[in-house]
Deep mutational scan, measured.
Amino acid sequence: MEVRTIKVFTTVDNINLHTQVVDMSMTYGQQFGPTYLDGADVTKIKPHNSHEGKTFYVLPNDDTLRVEAFEYYHTTDPSFLGRYMSALNHTKKWKYPQVNGLTSIKWADNNCYLATALLTLQQIELKFNPPALQDAYYRARAGEAANFCALILAYCNKTVGELGDVRETMSYLFQHANLDSCKRVLNVVCKTCGQQQTTLKGVEAVMYMGTLSYEQFKKGVQIPCTCGKQATKYLVQQESPFVMMSAPPAQYELKHGTFTCASEYTGNYQCGHYKHITSKETLYCIDGALLTKSSEYKGPITDVFYKENSYTTTIK
């Protein structure tokens, strides 16, 4: 009895394709271990004539594949690729409408935090270190965002349907971005203890939790000093293409032309909904596939993004 075979390709990165001759009487799992086709788990399936010449994702289970996976995804987590594939199996079914010149995501599976993050990423200057993220990001900007969303979920250790947080998501993504040249110098002034300067680099240099107003941050924000008295913390120097200011959701007025974009969060910790506000020729609110415009805006804002380049204080 002759062994019926077909020729397929296996890959971990969709760049390096490895030619395989597979036995049609055995499952993919018996031949390769966990195997995925377009995100779908085909591990328990036997090869079919229609699979001839198709590319299958496999887990990096030998040295060659491990090197290829690390170079593309910059992670050695053995569960990463499987999590990416199972997320992709959902995100490829989502709709990605162009809204006001940006790629958004039609609401499904509690994905409003991903839509808000995706919209924000198209408006701030950011370059990702893992080629996987950078490639998928370019495709997302062009309207094909399924891979990018699935990668975000995998890097953030999230599953489809789980509630997510924009600030946490951005923080994970910033860790995989090139923020080497970003720098922030802060000064804390206390009447009792004097003053202390701190220099922050990388992710810490672009994120701040405690106030939404970048102007206020430049002037000074009140913080408790270690001595128990009130101290003032203010920005001395900022070198970065953008800054992200966050605070627990509270009524906040966004003035046209003073910011790049913002995240609105309605609801409580267990259950809520994100919308995205962007400042173009007027203010726009993007909620999944829905767009509304207004000249002014007041609502429960939790993150505001500002364009920056270089700032030095005039406070002496």
Rank of each mutant, 00 (worst) to 15 (best):
E2L: 11
E2C: 04
T5Q: 10
V8Y: 06
F9C: 09
D13G: 05
D13C: 06
I15P: 05
Q20N: 13
V22W: 06
T27I: 13
T27F: 11
G29H: 08
P34F: 00
T35G: 07
Y36T: 04
G39M: 08
A40V: 14
D41G: 09
K44F: 13
I45H: 14
N49K: 12
S50P: 12
E52L: 10
F56C: 11
F56Q: 02
Y57E: 00
V58Y: 01
P60K: 13
P60M: 06
P60G: 06
N61A: 12
D63T: 12
D63K: 09
L65F: 07
V67G: 15
H74W: 03
H74R: 09
T76W: 09
P78T: 07
P78N: 11
F80K: 02
L81F: 10
G82N: 11
G82E: 14
Y84D: 04
Y84F: 13
K92L: 10
K92A: 09
K93H: 13
K93Y: 11
K93W: 11
W94H: 01
Y96H: 09
V99Y: 12
V99F: 14
A108W: 04
D109N: 11
N110D: 06
N110F: 06
N110T: 00
N111M: 04
N111V: 00
N111L: 04
C112D: 00
A115L: 08
L121D: 05
Q122C: 07
Q122H: 00
Q123F: 01
I124L: 14
E125D: 14
L126V: 13
L126W: 11
N129D: 09
N129F: 05
P130G: 09
P130T: 08
P131A: 03
Q134E: 05
A136L: 04
Y138Q: 14
R139F: 08
A140K: 02
A142W: 07
A142H: 14
E144T: 07
A146V: 04
F148Q: 04
C149F: 03
L153Q: 03
C156K: 05
N157G: 12
K158I: 00
V160K: 07
E162A: 07
G164V: 03
V166K: 01
T169W: 03
M170Y: 06
M170V: 05
S171E: 06
Y172R: 13
F174G: 02
Q175K: 11
H176C: 05
D180N: 15
C182F: 06
V185Y: 00
V188R: 10
Q195C: 07
Q195N: 11
Q197I: 10
T199C: 10
L200Y: 11
G202Q: 04
G202W: 00
V203Q: 01
V203A: 15
Y208I: 08
M209L: 08
Q216A: 11
F217N: 01
F217E: 00
K218R: 06
K219Q: 11
K219P: 01
T226G: 14
T232A: 06
T232I: 13
Q237G: 05
Q238F: 03
E239S: 07
E239F: 07
S240Y: 02
P241Y: 03
M244Q: 01
M244T: 01
S246D: 06
A247K: 10
P248G: 08
Q251E: 11
Y252S: 05
L254R: 01
K255P: 05
G257Q: 06
G257A: 04
G257S: 06
F259V: 03
C261P: 02
C261W: 03
E264Y: 04
T266A: 01
Q270S: 15
Y274H: 00
K275Y: 02
K275N: 04
H276T: 05
T278R: 06
E281A: 06
L283W: 01
Y284T: 14
A289P: 08
A289L: 07
A289M: 09
A289G: 09
A289H: 13
S295Y: 04
E296D: 15
Y297Q: 07
Y297P: 00
P300V: 12
T302Y: 03
E308A: 08
N309P: 09
S310V: 14
T313L: 15
T314Q: 15
I315P: 15
